[in-house]
Design a protein around this nucleic acid. Sequence first.
DNA 1: TTGTATGCGTTATCAC
DNA 2: GTGATAACGCATACAA
Lengths: 336, 336
Amino acid sequence: MPKPTIQDVARAAGVHPATVSRALNPALVGRVTPATTRRVEEAAARLGYVPDEFGRTLRTRRSRMIGVVVPDLGNPVFPPIVRGIEDTLRTAGYAALIANTDDSAQRQEELLRTLTARRCDGFIIASSRRDDRAVVDLVNTQTPVVLVNRLMDTATAAVASDDAAGMRAAVEHLVSLGHREIAHVGGPEALSMTGVRRAAFDSAMAAAGLEVSPELICAARRYTADEGQRAFEAVLARRVPTAVIAGNDMIAVGCYGALRSRGLRCPADVSVVGFNNMPLSDFLDPALTTVAIPQFDIGTQAAQLVLDLIADHPPAQRLVPVSLMVRGSTGPVTCV
Amino acid sequence: MPKPTIQDVARAAGVHPATVSRALNPALVGRVTPATTRRVEEAAARLGYVPDEFGRTLRTRRSRMIGVVVPDLGNPVFPPIVRGIEDTLRTAGYAALIANTDDSAQRQEELLRTLTARRCDGFIIASSRRDDRAVVDLVNTQTPVVLVNRLMDTATAAVASDDAAGMRAAVEHLVSLGHREIAHVGGPEALSMTGVRRAAFDSAMAAAGLEVSPELICAARRYTADEGQRAFEAVLARRVPTAVIAGNDMIAVGCYGALRSRGLRCPADVSVVGFNNMPLSDFLDPALTTVAIPQFDIGTQAAQLVLDLIADHPPAQRLVPVSLMVRGSTGPVTCV
DNA sequence: TTGTATGCGTTATCAC
DNA sequence: GTGATAACGCATACAA
């Protein structure tokens, strides 16, 4: 038997469909007599009626769906964020439509088109390129958009980790261990996060009175272990630093690989610091010292911000605090 | 300006909306004159018209959305599966609506209700309890359902890893290293996967001519590192085996923790084998020997199966091959 | 308090 | 080959 509609309930309760709609709408309590309400509720329960979100969307022009755009769910930092988003949205009666861009601008544009065609009420975008026409366009059409880990301008809602503070803490930690030759392996230049963390690295180094040596800086082509390894191997071929700060934990894992492939030990020869505190980073070999960002919380806040935008609140920005998790991958400089 | 509708395109092209629909439908090529088609396509391009999936759903009664139900996206084994699903669905013009159950039967029931209210065309369910009324009901209503890692009966489409073969390979590997005292830490009894892997363990042990000692068997309350550690600590308090096979990799990570907390070394004192080959399992300390299941591929196949069901193919079942990844967490029994 | 009428965007089905 | 029409399920402004 097909799913019962509001019509079926109306027939069963001997009332008009509109009355069923009102009786079942908690916001309209008092506009229907208790007796009628009870009859309707009974009929609905008996038939197993669940209001069709689709019909509701059609009428209200609200789909209660949020498009969630991430670079790659396979990167362990994103699942906790997505869970935070999903839990918060579900509690509010919303659903998340998740899409992966693999950092491709073209793919992202397609996805946003598709998600728009599905009438998403808003977007949470955790995948931000520097030249993000598609996102700018979206914001300009008054669509609720929340950026994750990117502040665009004050008119756009966003939640981001305090990367500058994190980078300072990382550099200070390494300096306190005696390091002065500190490398940085960032991600793809096209992503805004890369620039933010790179700039944070530069100023943290300057604040510590250290020079940033150009030959100790490089960019992985993606935020993955493979590309991180390849990038750091290029650095090591030029000069071996005493420590490296990676653009994120996956790149840090790649740095582990690069060190191994050259017979260097971590942290005895080179200390490694990651970024994000992704799941399992504490179980790596060695356990990774990393700048912890509150992943689940970032997801929660992003969801809350997009719900706020939908409720016509002005766009807000949140900078969430980070903390350095000191583990086994960093140690004092060993004299040769 | 609001999103253009088919009406706007019709006006701009000087034709009827129905003609626009036909002209833009690749399946109906030839039913509209080339000249008209070109006029329509030009108007659509000029206005930036994208057919509204919502209106289409209303009319065709097909939402092109698939509900994807997983226990917890935070478990590293699921993101690759979900990516396989999502990539395949997107290529076919479908979208994935993802929901986490946290292994709660009640939550799963709610989610299925919600997803049904959103008119999902089908479901991929990777979260299967033994007593899964909600899923059985769903299947009975002729809704396309694909189970992941659970075979229910021959009438239900499913894709599962060949856990029996994997468990045999794990036991044989340990036996070849001289192990005879092999423990098993499974997951919650209520989940079907737990029973499957437990039974596979029993028969693999029998096939190797080994006794299964009841005091070396136990069940974690969840498939997490914390619960795995707690469960294995209980085993260790009774008797220390020379090896343990975990119900999945997160439990194996918990076993690492339990060994450490008792001052035992892996693999010198106790060898550990995991299940799933989740991301980063090769970067753990020590690198985890584990039964590898083709996660992305499982997702791809699950998506294909649900699309097949929607296309009215009969339900198919796929048993995907597994392979044992031998790494640092297993070694020969050391004589005391 | 309840019933009536309407429209959301699209496409299948008919009629021309 | 193209136009007209109806229908999908619901919520709301308006009428009774």
